[in-house]
């Protein structure tokens, strides 16, 4: 069992997501940084019996009442296991009564805590990913007791540290494809779009906003389907980038689509960071 001593800024449980329900208006949810999510699964090696917490900006403080193994991936926060500093991408041995505490993020935005246990939480439409109001809450809260299913869990590569390239966390470039409505931009605007630094604001699981100087005529477009990483441009020049809890449809021109890799990069960008768009040379 895990006792939540402190919830952190925004900590939620995420799994592979709620795929196959977009036609009901249900967003996919799941980890914002899929690369860090996958790495945790890889390190712990038992895909079906792993639970993952996504921690944003400031991580939680947790007391483990039973032994287990955990691994942290993604952003770098100052992490202590019983007052002793521990690092990311390493399998940690947690004993009963151990306390894990994560502080404010030092590099990146989102840290993932992977636990080699199946936490017993609400499963809605095939997924345990938190998404209010489908699930009762959008975050874990102080005082929560998270129980897990009892299982024998032995790890093959205990204490092994995998060499892993985390440099994407600090990339400034977001690789993109042209979107269906890219053509509404003038030649000058299109050039400008790939030159200007864009500052991130309102960064959350729904998506984020980038302010640009591009102005377009308001258009009474019919609502269209969008997905995580779709970049819509509003008449006032705000670029809206959908996240994993973002709406499944939108009414503004879809000028770009982030690559899967760029979604991971963006998931690690703190508000105020500047990024650039770069046209992907791989073709889809």
């Amino acid at each position: 069992m895990i006792e939540v001593l402190d919830s952190g800024f925004y900590t939620s449980i995420q799994d592979e997501g709620r795929k196959g329900y977009r036609h009901l208006g249900v967003p996919v949810s799941g980890a914002m940084d899929q690369k860090a999510f996958e790495l945790g699964r890889l390190l712990l090696g038992r895909k079906n019996e792993i639970s993952t917490m996504e921690c944003t900006l400031i991580g939680p403080r947790l007391r483990f009442h039973e032994p287990c193994n955990i691994v942290l991936t993604g952003a770098n926060m100052e992490v202590k296991l019983n007052q002793k500093l521990v690092s990311n991408n390493t399998i940690l041995n947690v004993r009963a009564a151990d306390e894990l505490s994560l502080k404010r993020v030092e590099k990146g935005l989102r840290t993932y805590i992977h636990i080699n246990k199946s936490l017993i939480t609400e499963k809605v439409l095939g997924s345990t990913s938190f998404y209010f109001p489908l699930t009762k809450s959008s975050v874990i809260e102080k005082g929560d007791h998270l129980f897990w299913l009892k299982s024998e869990s032995t790890l093959r590569n205990f204490n092994s540290k995998i060499k892993w390239d985390d440099s994407y966390i600090e990339y400034k470039e977001l690789s993109v494809y042209k979107g269906p409505e890219f053509k509404i931009l003038t030649k000058e605007q299109a050039e400008q779009l790939f030159k200007m630094p864009l500052k991130i604001s309102n960064q959350n699981r729904m998506g984020c906003r980038l302010k640009s100087s591009l102005e377009i005529k308001p258009d009474l477009m019919l609502s269209q389907s969008i997905r995580p990483g779709t970049v819509q441009l509003t008449p006032s020049g705000t670029l809206l980038i959908s996240g994993f809890d973002g709406q499944v449809s939108g009414g503004y021109p879809r000028i770009l689509q982030l690559t899967d890799e760029a979604l991971n990069v963006l998931a690690q960008k703190i508000e105020g960071t500047e990024v650039f768009f770069k046209l992907s040379n791989t073709h889809l």
Binding site: K19, G20, Y21, R22, H23, L222, S223, Q224, S225, R227, V248, S249, H283, L284
Partner: peptide
């Protein structure tokens, strides 16, 4: 595909993997 949606004037196929356009 993992999902298929429609809107007023579109059909959208969400493929699991990359595809040959």
């Amino acid at each position: 595909i993992e999902d298929i949606t429609i809107t007023f004037d579109s059909i959208n196929l969400y493929f699991k993997n990359e595809y040959d356009h």
